[in-house]
């Protein structure tokens, strides 16, 4: 398109976009490349090797990282599932419950975990478990994750639900479906892309969390981020880069699924 007649585009914006992407991707690209370095030093390049990947699974720290990975993924799976179920019920009440005085307070409460800075939530949760005398460990991490995952699961579900015309449920009820049947047979299938997005977002947020986990984990219970953090404090080692690259892979897979789901349309 001619730049004379085109009023939409601005010269220079493309350059800035490229710069933006370079800043976003350069660190990740560098770490990915260096994770395949054969050298034991992180500064010298000695050629391609999968040495550090096998070190992750068989090296001296492998047991620690394996346990941390099991903890991380099991917590993310449970927390995201529970948070998604809670979010679906809450969204149904808020989007389809008519006007009621608890509507705004409910929305406020649900979004509270993203309003409060993470470090504050971490402190508050630690203090809470301390005050009620709950021993810190796997369970405290899980409970804290369920709570702060709720808004991340909720927002995509609410957005999807608001886009669904309520005449669909009315039509179902007009055709003799009870409320429960209308929910299960009509509303739930139509909400499914939102539910999957919400679940994936909650899952990744749980997997991602360092600060809250670091506060509420007991001695000896580690997730991947806390284990990596502990290791990095003593300097970046090549095996950390291998783990990082694998986690990067997990993220890319998740975001791809989420992208496909957002395009997926069960109405065609």
């Amino acid at each position: 398109m001619s730049t004379v007649t085109d009023v939409r585009t601005y010269r220079g914006f493309f350059t800035v976009t490229v710069l933006c992407l370079v800043i976003l991707y350069a660190p990740l690209a560098v770490v990915t490349v260096y994770s395949f370095n054969a050298s034991a030093s992180i500064t010298v390049w000695e050629g391609l090797s999968l040495r550090w990947y096998s070190d992750v699974f068989t090296g001296p720290e492998s047991a620690k990282f394996k346990q941390a990975a099991i903890n991380s993924f099991s917590i993310a799976l449970i927390a995201a599932s529970v948070a998604t179920a809670i979010a679906v019920t809450a969204a149904t009440a808020i989007v389809r419950g008519g006007r009621f005085w608890l509507r705004l307070p409910s929305l406020g409460l649900i979004t509270l975990p993203i309003m409060v800075p993470e470090i504050v939530l971490a402190v508050a949760t630690l203090i809470f478990f301390n005050a009620i005398g709950f021993t810190r460990g796997y369970l405290t991490i899980l409970v804290a994750h369920i709570a702060f995952c709720i808004p991340f699961a909720y927002l995509p579900i609410q957005a999807r639900m608001q886009g669904i015309d309520d005449t669909y449920e009315q039509a179902a009820m007009d055709l003799y479906a009870s409320r429960a049947q209308a929910f299960r047979r009509v509303l739930l299938p139509l909400m499914m892309p939102g539910i999957i997005s919400g679940f994936l977002l909650a899952f990744i947020v749980s997997l991602d969390d360092f600060i809250i986990t670091n506060f509420v984990k007991g001695a000896g219970v580690e997730t991947l981020p806390t284990a990596i953090f502990g290791s990095v404090k003593q300097g970046i080692k090549p095996n950390i880069m291998a783990i990082s690259t694998m986690l990067l892979g997990v993220s890319v897979v998740m975001v791809t699924i989420s992208y496909v789901v957002s395009k997926w349309d069960n109405t065609k």
């Binding site: 015309d165 005449t167 669909y168 009315q170 039509a171 179902a172 009820m173 007009d174 055709l175 003799y176 479906a177 009870s178 209308a182 009509v186 139509l190 069960n266 109405t267």
Partner: peptide
């Protein structure tokens, strides 16, 4: 769902 009447909706409301 307990009334023996049925509706043709303005936007049809066919389950997509």
């Amino acid at each position: 769902h307990k009334r023996p009447v049925n509706t043709v909706f303005q936007n049809y409301a066919l389950f997509p």
